[in-house]
Design a protein around this nucleic acid. Structure first.
Lengths: 150, 150
DNA sequence: ATAGTATATTACTAAATAGTAATATTGTCA
DNA sequence: TGACAATATTACTATTTAGTAATATACTAT
C-alpha cells in the first residue's frame, strides 16, 4: 500500500502540538503542559487507575510514564498510592487541584477542535474518529502479536 | 465541537513512531532515524530545497531543523550550499549515500502502511488522506493568521 | 546609502519520549 | 516452599522537538 498519510499525520501532530502548547500558555495555564494534560485527561475520564492502565490509555511507554508521573506528583497534580487489593500496583489519582483545571482544559480543547476540524460536518468528524480508532487497534495489535508474523 | 480525535491522534503518533523506529532498527538501518527519514523523504520527493522550504514541507520548527540538519550533515546524509541566485538561502541536498537508502525506506514505509491501514479500502484510505490534508490546512492557516481573530 | 526585511545560524534552555538493564515488591502456581 | 510472572521504580542514555534572543548575511526598496 502506498500512501503518505503517515507523513501527513506526523505533520499535523507537530503543528497541533505547537498550537495547543501556545493556547495553554496564552490562557495563563502554567500549572501543566499539553503532555501532562493528556495524562490528566484519562484520569478525569476514568478516575483512579494503575500505572500500567494509564500507559495503556495514553499509549505512552512505561519509561515515559514514570518520568511524567514524577513531575506531576511534584507539581501537586497527582497522588500515588499502593493498591491494597493488589499490592503490585500503584494507583494514580488526581489531586483536588488537578480537578479544578478540568473546565479550563475542556474549554481549550474545544477551541482546539473548532480550529482543527473547521469545515468538517458532524458525520465527517465521526468518520475521522472511527478511522483513528481502527488505526489505533491495528497498531496495538501489531505491537502485541503482529511483530513476528510479517 | 466535542471530539477526542486529537487525543486519538496523539496516541496513534506514539504507537506509530515506536513501531517505525523498531522497524528501521530491525532492518539493520542505523544510518538514520525515523525523524531524519521524514526530512530525507521531502528531499527525495522534491530535490534540493532551501532550509525554510524543508521546514515548511516537514512542518518542523526552524530551531528543530537546524539541529536535525547538523546531525544529518555530520552523518553524511545531506549537504548544505549557499544559493548563488539568492545568497540569503542555504540549499539542502541529499548525498549519494542518502539516495541509496530510498528503496529500503520505501519498502519499510510500505510495510508500515500495510499494518497501519489494515482493513481499509482504497477509498477509505483516500478519504482519510483528504481529511488529513484539510486538517493540515486548518492548522497552517491558524498559525499564519488565525491566532488573532478567535 | 541606508533602513528594513528575509534567511539562517548560534547558543542556549527545557520538555517529551523511548530504550535498557538492574532492582524491589508482590502475587501465583506447581 | 520455591520458581516464575507481573508491576513498578531507579538510573541511566539518547533523540526529538520547540522556544528565545542574539548575530550574520544578503536582498529590497526608498
Amino acid at each position: 500500500m502506498k500512501s503518505n498519510a503517515g507523513f501527513l499525520n506526523s505533520q499535523n501532530t507537530h503543528l497541533g502540538n505547537r498550537i495547543f502548547e501556545k493556547m495553554l500558555k496564552d490562557s495563563g495555564i502554567d500549572a501543566f503542559s499539553g503532555a501532562q494534560g493528556r495524562i490528566m485527561y484519562v484520569l478525569w475520564e476514568n478516575g483512579t487507575l494503575s500505572v500500567s492502565q494509564v500507559c495503556k490509555l495514553t499509549s505512552l511507554a512505561n519509561s515515559t510514564m514514570t518520568v511524567m508521573l514524577d513531575q506531576m506528583e511534584v507539581r501537586g497534580l497527582i497522588n500515588r498510592t499502593r493498591n491494597e487489593r493488589n499490592r503490585k500496583q500503584i494507583l494514580v489519582s488526581l489531586t483536588d487541584t488537578a480537578r479544578l483545571y478540568k473546565k479550563e482544559y475542556d474549554y481549550i480543547s474545544e477551541k482546539m477542535n473548532n480550529l482543527t476540524y473547521k469545515g468538517f460536518s458532524q458525520e465527517e468528524l465521526m468518520m475521522y474518529e472511527n478511522m483513528l480508532i481502527r488505526i489505533k487497534k491495528n497498531l496495538e495489535d501489531y505491537i502485541e502479536n503482529g511483530e513476528n508474523n510479517d
